[in-house]
């Protein structure tokens, strides 16, 4: 399970504010934790609360990828902002969110993906004007 793996980040530059407990990475940011890979143009790691590391990635778009593992289909998600909540094992995709799981695709303003449950929940972003949620489910017979 990725949660027990260390988080590895690489970037062009970074700034750490010890008083805030926040490190901000800039330029070609890649975060890897186990099978999870996030790419972004900027990424912020908030350690203010030692119990929970909050990770916010932004990009055009930022991406969240998990390869196929056994029978589990691959996950390929994109959005302007990706929030990765380690303890809750949840990924929140905001603005131009899109997630592809196997052949099925969901688009919308706000998508939540529960990593361990493999569950996707699409909804409205309270801070954005309402927009449609679109779901594409492949015809039966093709692999989900």
């Amino acid at each position: 399970q990725s949660a027990q793996d260390p988080i590895r980040i690489s970037a062009d530059e970074a700034t750490r504010s010890e008083l805030e407990g926040i490190t901000r990475y800039l330029g070609n940011v890649v975060l890897v934790q186990g099978t999870i890979t996030i790419t972004a143009s900027s990424l912020e790691i908030d350690q203010a609360n030692p119990e929970e590391i909050k990770i916010i990635a932004t990009g055009s778009p930022a991406t969240f990828v998990q390869p196929m593992v056994g029978a589990e289909p691959a996950i390929d998600a994109k959005a302007q902002t990706i929030r990765y909540e380690q303890v809750a094992r949840k990924v929140i995709l905001e603005q131009d969110a899109r997630i592809q799981r196997g052949e099925s695709i969901i688009r919308g303003p706000l998508i939540e993906y529960f990593i361990d449950e493999k569950r996707v929940q699409a909804g409205q972003d309270a801070n954005q004007p309402k927009s449609r949620v679109e779901v594409v489910i492949p015809p039966s017979g093709s692999t989900p």
């Binding site: 793996d5 260390p6 530059e13 380690q86």
Partner: peptide, 26 residues
């Protein structure tokens, strides 16, 4: 990283090139 500038009073550290970090798992 390769290169750093730190303000030790503000406790702010700017890593200037080729940054890599490792965070221990929770």
């Amino acid at each position: 990283s390769e290169g750093l500038t730190a303000d030790l009073k503000q406790q702010s550290f700017h890593f200037t090139h080729k940054v890599t970090s490792v965070y221990a798992p929770l």
